[in-house]
């Protein structure tokens, strides 16, 4: 949840909160605090996205679009909602339409999440142990259908 954003956009600085008075509400301070407390997967994925966002149109020689900023950003939002601290980071692959694919192929599970924009995309996963195979669309704020496969890739069966 992004309550920190909600606090930040307020315009006034007219109040001191005794319980938090020792923690200045300065962006650089927040950034530093986030940097030391954030899980490893975030810096890994952000590093990859930074490179992918620099790729020009036609990066695959077949008229591909450059990666969309909004798709990359929502990919991070989605991971932030679903990843646990010990979930292995995904492979991040650009797609020709300007989206990105987040992929895990481990623990006898294949999981692919294709993000094309905010609340837009689709997914597919296959559990090789049980034979279960599920695909679906991402078209709302409800990401519940991804919880089970995300938990599965995060642990050995």
């Amino acid at each position: 949840m992004s309550s920190n954003a909600a606090r930040a956009y307020r315009a006034d600085d007219d109040f001191l909160s005794p319980a938090t008075a020792n923690y200045p509400n300065h962006p650089r301070f927040q950034q530093a605090r986030t940097a030391v407390s954030e899980p490893r997967w975030r810096s890994d994925v952000l590093g990859t996205l930074e490179s992918l966002l620099r790729m020009p149109a036609g990066w695959n020689s077949y008229g591909s679009k450059p990666m969309s900023w909004d798709a990359a950003m929502f990919g991070m939002i989605l991971l932030n909602s679903l990843m646990k601290t010990d979930t292995p980071p995904p492979s991040v692959v650009p797609t020709a339409g300007g989206g990105l694919q987040l992929e895990w192929h481990l623990n006898k599970v294949d999981l692919e999440i294709h993000v094309t924009g905010p609340y837009e995309g689709d997914f597919w996963w296959h559990d090789h142990l049980t034979g279960e195979e599920v695909s679906g669309e991402i078209k709302s704020a409800d990401l519940q259908a991804l919880v089970k496969p995300m938990n599965r890739v995060g642990r050995s069966a």
Binding site: M1, S2, R42, I77, S81, L143
Partner: peptide, 15 residues
């Protein structure tokens, strides 16, 4: 960016 998603982790820092 601020997006509501379900589920989401309480207190998770934003990006």
């Amino acid at each position: 960016p601020a997006f509501e998603t379900f589920p989401s982790v309480v207190g998770e820092p934003g990006i």
